[in-house]
Amino acid sequence: MLQELLQYLFSGITNGAIYGVIAVGFSMLYSSTELINFAHGEFVMLGALGLVSLWGGLGIPLPVAFLLVVIGVAVVGFLFERLAIRTVRKPNPIVLVIITVGASIFLRGIGMLTWGKDAYSVPPFSDHDPIDLAGAKLLSQSIWIVGIALFFVILLHLFFKKTLTGKAMIACAISKKAAWLTGIPSERMVLLAFFLSTGMGAVAGIIIAPITMCSYDMGTMLGLKGFCAAMLGGLGSLWGSILGGFILGILESLGVGFFSSSMKDAIAFFLLLLILYVRPGGIIMAKDIKRF
């Protein structure tokens, strides 16, 4: 029994970490722009397929490929903000959301043209045998995933708490006008938020690439799960997003383990709804400052 339970937890935590990283991307963008980026899953896809090309295809060493892909995808996010989001006059949040829906279809199309319709796989980051814990197998890639996810979240946390730019971003998130009055270039902060958010999307794509198969249409489902995790944890909260990711991941795998695998998404969504009804602003809901 313990063996199975552990195995479910390993799976849940691994997936949860990925959902969490995706959720952080959603959340971060929301706090500075009040925008939900429905193309976020497609940035995850770009990250994964980018790694397939650079590491798997061109044989660039993993750390370099990692950096190049994250920066590359973040630049795409940057261009997206500049070319599509910024150009809207009198932006209304729902209009921007539909633009991101358009962007998601566009990026999926680009993905299909670039990488074709087939799936790809890449090897794990390191070639260790699975670790045996009471009969349950913990994959080395799972450790990489959770480690990298936590590393980036802590990095972001420090960035927001310790650096001037990070603090300026929080200020913008709380009140754009007030921040602007104190001399913070709020437009540049929005751009930075896009850069960081899509970069986090790429990170999620890169770490998930070895455990699953990467194809141009992998982003939709992952984006959706990440969105749920972000809502569950509380939009705009960094740690809430990560927490939401873990909860969603574990709920899913326990749903498979103890109920039925065909109903696992239904179980996860049902519990999500219950949690939302009890806490209509997500689990971590700061009282007055709903942002980072």
């Binding site: 199975e4 195995q7 479910y8 390993f10 799976s11 849940g12 691994t14 997936n15 990925i18 087939d118 799936a119 796989s121 349950a136 998930i208 455990i211 699953t212 198969m213 194809s215 249409d217 992998m218 939709t220 489902m221 992952l222 795998s253 498979v256 383990g257 695998s261 998404d265």
Partner: peptide, 29 residues
Amino acid sequence: GAKDTDMTPQLTKIRKVQPDAIVCWGTNP
């Protein structure tokens, strides 16, 4: 699900009942 990233929970459950073989019915990936 067609887009699921990890099937270890399902397989763990199958392993528990110790069948003689596993049949997987699906299309790539």
